[in-house]
């Protein structure tokens, strides 16, 4: 056994991926990410099992588990459920102790969180009723453009002509892409317009939490790996954007941190 009872786990069941982080006294021991699918208990068992195997630990070594994300209530072995907003803030505060502004862009959810210097949530805003401005938007667009979603950001950076795509609805944007393809618009230009669209959505979300004027943005969630989004947000907001080494597991990390307090 390692960690003398201080090992905690955070499990973040998102709409697209499920993440587990094992945290010990001296930092992250291991983590695992996989598609959520339709069987949430199975997905969580798998990510947790994989993390335990990587760290050479067993379930009994874990002192506490906090689950978070949309599927948080369906995890039978967690000690407590805490929303992804609080967990995300805790994770970001751990990595960037001076951060006061977080933008998390997940599969079907994007949120802006304003926090104090102690990592406590002061205000938050989430996308309402619609997946425009989320990872799903990029996923649908990438499928339509026949581009790997991981490559969509890089593709957009090669754009030479500026065009505009509606930012109001993912499904309508998809039909717009089809019309643009039919008109032989370059896919790089379409990709750039899509990023502009998602960027303006996120910019609106940031403004709705009234961030401190010079606060830097910590960008988390799977979409934070998209370099075009990072550049775009820096340009639109005039703020520096910082991305953690592994942005997708920040919320699960926050859950593991909060699990220390639970026990």
């Amino acid at each position: 056994m390692r960690g003398d009872g201080m090992i905690t786990a955070g499990i973040d069941v998102g709409s697209t991926t499920t993440k587990a982080v094992l945290l010990g006294k001296d930092g992250i021991y291991s983590y695992s990410v996989q598609a959520t699918g339709i069987d949430i208990p199975e997905a969580t068992e798998q990510v947790l099992g994989e993390s335990l195997a990587q760290a050479n630990l067993s379930f009994e070594d874990i002192a506490g588990i906090v689950s978070t994300g949309y599927g948080r209530i369906s995890i039978p072995f967690s000690s407590q459920t805490i929303t992804e907003i609080t967990c995300n803030a805790a994770g970001v505060h751990h990595l960037f102790p001076n951060a006061t502004l977080v933008v998390d862009i997940g599969g079907q959810d994007s949120k802006a969180i304003k926090m104090d210097k102690k990592g406590r949530v002061r205000q938050f805003a989430m996308n309402d009723k619609c997946a425009a401005g989320t990872g799903k938007f990029l996923e649908v667009a990438a499928q339509t453009l026949r581009v790997d979603v991981e490559e969509l950001g890089k593709t957009s950076l090669e754009s030479k002509n500026k065009i505009t795509i509606s930012n109001t609805c993912t499904v309508f944007a998809q039909s717009e892409i089809v019309s643009l393809i039919a008109r032989k618009t370059e896919k790089e230009d379409i990709a750039a317009a899509l990023h502009e669209s998602i960027g303006s959505r996120i910019y609106g979300l940031i403004n709705s939490v009234y961030p401190e004027p010079k606060a830097e943005i910590v960008l988390t969630g799977g979409v934070a790996r998209n370099i075009a989004i990072v550049k775009l947000l820096e340009r639109m907001t005039g703020r520096m954007v910082m991305v953690p080494e592994n942005p997708q597991i920040v919320t699960a990390l926050g859950a593991a941190i909060l699990a220390r307090k639970v026990n």
Binding site: Y70, I82, T83, I85, T86, F124, D128, K129
Partner: peptide, 23 residues
């Protein structure tokens, strides 16, 4: 909370309410 009857997800509202309680 922005609300409109017959539209929007209750689970999304639940997350907002829980997050508010946590603050």
């Amino acid at each position: 909370l922005f609300i409109e009857k017959g539209s929007g997800s209750m689970e999304a509202v639940r997350t907002r309410v829980q997050a508010f309680v946590e603050t």
